[in-house]
Design a protein around this nucleic acid. Sequence first.
DNA 1: TTAAAAAATGAGAATTATTCTCATTTATTC
DNA 2: GAATAAATGAGAATAATTCTCATTTTTTAA
Lengths: 144, 144
Amino acid sequence: MKDSKKILSENKVSITNPRIIVLESLLENRNPITVDELQSKLKNKVAKSTLYRVLNDLKNIKVLNEFTTPENATVVELIFEDETHHHHLFCSDCGEIIDIQMAANFEKTLSKEIKRIEKKFNFTIEDHRLELFGTCTDLCKNCN
Amino acid sequence: MKDSKKILSENKVSITNPRIIVLESLLENRNPITVDELQSKLKNKVAKSTLYRVLNDLKNIKVLNEFTTPENATVVELIFEDETHHHHLFCSDCGEIIDIQMAANFEKTLSKEIKRIEKKFNFTIEDHRLELFGTCTDLCKNCN
DNA sequence: TTAAAAAATGAGAATTATTCTCATTTATTC
DNA sequence: GAATAAATGAGAATAATTCTCATTTTTTAA
């Protein structure tokens, strides 16, 4: 079965055209994309209101991650099964968003620190997000 | 000189009533506050458009930090001179936002890792943000 | 396989947060 | 203290997201 349909059926949500179209589009490249860009890409294929609904559905079944750029654009990206937790690097020159993997030993230290915070504040921490902001020294691929 | 006026004059922006009112309000308690709450607090004292302008001014002179909750509410908090870099803990039950200080050795490891990322991606990283999401095990002060 | 029930969609209206406009007021300069 | 520059208030404009509801599509289960 095609990936998009598989994702939907595995998560017990009904298989509909808009959902397939949105998923295919997100599967095409593994990069984060702004909702705005996605909307342009799918113009005349999926209604705006449906796009937002589908994105919500995908968030609910936890195959989609949503976050906000420093410029307040909403960005989405599929969560791939084979990928480990990753973070984001934002270029303030060109707006590019780069997925980054932190070194294993850093992640270990972070986990330990999170456990300490959980105890200290009597919290159950379910998720975390680390974002780095800066500019590419050489021009990055969109900077020119 | 009062703190609010001092902040403005030190940063060479003109001293006006709305700026003083907003600053006093933020100085009152050191906790993050949503723009929405701030707006209610200052109703009939500062026009909505002015509030947004003042917040922008404060961001520009780098005494105000702005970020977004997982529920997409915009939150602001003053940056106090005496405080070191801190992060945020969000309770998804009651919406409370808690300022947290990470252990010094964690911050050291993070700095090193950031340097590694800078080299790897040829980036100059100017800032970073670490956010933790979860729920308080005991009910936190707003949860009940 | 098909009829009935449930869920999802499209189109555009409604809502909400933020920015903009512009005439008036306030602050700064010299 | 007059002239100039900057900031404000009020509400209109904009933009992103959610909502409404009549219609279409999908699922269920006989």
